[in-house]
Design a protein around this nucleic acid. Structure first.
Length: 249
DNA sequence: GAGCAAGCGAGCATGCGACA
DNA sequence: TGTCGCATGCTCGCTTGCTC
């Protein structure tokens, strides 16, 4: 099982250090996480070049550097998330270019630096404080918060609020607000919205529902607000997210 | 149909004191 | 230590209206 938090943190650090965008996919082509100037990263990947072709070439020839079909001198590097097991998923690093003034403003990286780029990614991955990750994984919630999360997970599609969950737990709402934030690290509303956004992702990519339908299905009262919240958590509008996924299927 | 910006009001987050 | 009630500032949810 891939630890998404670990991957996400590694990618953020890699992007900070190198200024190169990076995206992670599982082996079904489903995006796990992205870091960098995300919109550009998605825009310049295209169906014929990137995911399927990269995977095939990597399996067949061990080739891990790919040119963009859309733009000259724009390249991507493929790297397995786990070097010993490509079935854990892949990183796609880029766009990068060997021309300083390229058409899309991709970072300039001469080819002889590619191996260093990959090495630095491996080093970050290796050095990232695993203790922190384990602590996150093993974090236990109090009974109140466990019950609250169960309740939210079963009722997120309804118009639930802080009041309702506090009543369900038979505790004061201000007290619930306090302990919820102290244990989960985010406010009740934030948690609920994030859950709704996560649930909506599968509806966006697997079904042909309209944005309004999906917004209503996961508990948002209108499409506009759904757009705002979706973009807040993913950096993409729901439509962009659907397009991205469609590209890889 | 989808995205975006602005404005407004509701209600959330928070701090504090009190109580068991 | 755990819980509750209250007050208050301000964040966020939502609507409206517009463009593409």
């Amino acid at each position: 099982m891939i630890n998404k938090l670990h991957i996400s943190n590694v990618m953020k650090k890699f992007n900070l250090l190198t200024n190169i965008s990076i995206i992670a996919f599982d082996l079904n082509g489903v995006p796990i996480s992205a870091s960098g100037y995300g919109k550009t990263l998605y825009d310049f990947l295209d169906k014929n070049t990137i995911y399927d072709k990269m995977i095939n070439n990597y399996f067949n020839d061990g080739e891990n550097i790919f040119n963009s079909n859309c733009y000259n001198n724009i390249e991507y590097i493929l790297s397995p998330i786990c070097p010993r097991n490509i079935y854990r998923g892949i990183f796609i690093i880029g766009p990068i270019s060997q021309k300083k003034n390229n058409c899309i403003g991709a970072p300039y990286k001469p080819k002889h630096l590619y191996s260093y780029i990959l090495k630095s990614l491996r080093l970050i991955f290796k050095d990232f404080p695993k203790k922190h990750i384990e602590m996150e994984k093993e974090k236990e919630y109090s009974l109140h918060i466990k019950k609250a999360i169960d309740y939210i997970d079963s009722r997120y599609m309804d118009n639930i609020g802080l009041d309702e969950v506090a009543n369900y737990l038979n505790i004061n709402k201000s007290y619930f607000s306090t302990i919820f934030k102290s244990e989960t690290g985010e406010s009740f509303t934030n948690f609920l919205n994030r859950l709704r956004v996560e649930k909506s992702k599968s509806l966006l990519v697997n079904k042909d529902y309209s944005m309004l339908d999906i917004a209503l299905m996961v508990g948002f009262s209108n499409q506009n607000y759904y757009n705002i919240i979706f973009k807040k958590f993913t950096s993409y509008t729901p439509l962009q997210y659907r397009k991205v996924y469609t590209v890889y299927n």
